[in-house]
Design a protein around this nucleic acid. Structure first.
Lengths: 114, 114
DNA sequence: GCCATAGTACGGCGCTTATCGAACTACGAT
DNA sequence: ATCGTAGTTCGATAAGCGCCGTACTATGGC
């Protein structure tokens, strides 16, 4: 049995390019949109989000987000709870996450797809 | 002789994911940083920016930025003048470009590299 | 112990990307 | 017309990405 720990970059290790890259995929943007809609600090299991991809692809996307520093994940029983790292992102890159979320919302209202 | 016209997405065609992807590369971020530092509407030839890649790679990166709608390019004589599409980006995604530029500046002051 | 549920790991497939060098085109100046 | 400068185009390569299915592991409940 493994300890099932997950590597996260520290706040100082988070790189803007990695964050932008993580956010540039529609599936991952959907995850972030969902997590950002939760209450402050609230977590959700991967399975709470209905993604149009298989489980293994889901795992891949969550890893990209986690390794970029966008989300934080911890194991709780059989679930893996995920939360957005809003405080870290806001501290490092003020306004960035909000601008992306607003831009995403605007775009989705212009082009009602996905 | 070709007319040497360049295809640009219209404002409505600009997609957030494409913009984020375009900005997620260090070389392209350097280009955007440079262009954003110019006066409103001011243009610069590709050669004005000292990129650590070859000319053909430079052409590639400028095309990615142009096709994403981040920059506007027009031929003037032998040069190809480039300007950032600040008005379009600001109209579509308010605060996004500024947040990215600020984030980039902050990160560069934290980690003085590149 | 056994099973169901939640997620991981592995290997693979097809596509895209970042990069290069070398040959080419367009334009301005001489 | 020749030359130089600016940028393009054309392979090519090596790496990465998004996606899948299958087999696996971990946890909790029966």
């Amino acid at each position: 049995m493994t300890v099932r720990t997950l590597d996260h970059p520290t706040r100082a290790e988070i790189r803007l390019e990695a964050v932008l890259h993580a956010l540039s995929d529609p599936v991952r943007l959907q995850v972030v949109r969902f997590l950002a809609g939760l209450a402050e600090g609230e977590e959700a299991p991967c399975s709470a989000i209905d993604l149009a991809v298989t489980k293994s692809t889901t795992t891949h996307h969550f890893r990209v987000l986690r390794e970029a520093g966008v989300i934080h994940q911890v194991y709780r029983g059989t679930a893996k709870m995920t939360a957005i790292r809003r405080d870290d992102l806001d501290a490092l890159f003020p306004g960035l996450l909000d601008a992306v979320l607003t831009a995403d919302a605007t775009q989705r209202s212009r082009v009602p797809v996905g």
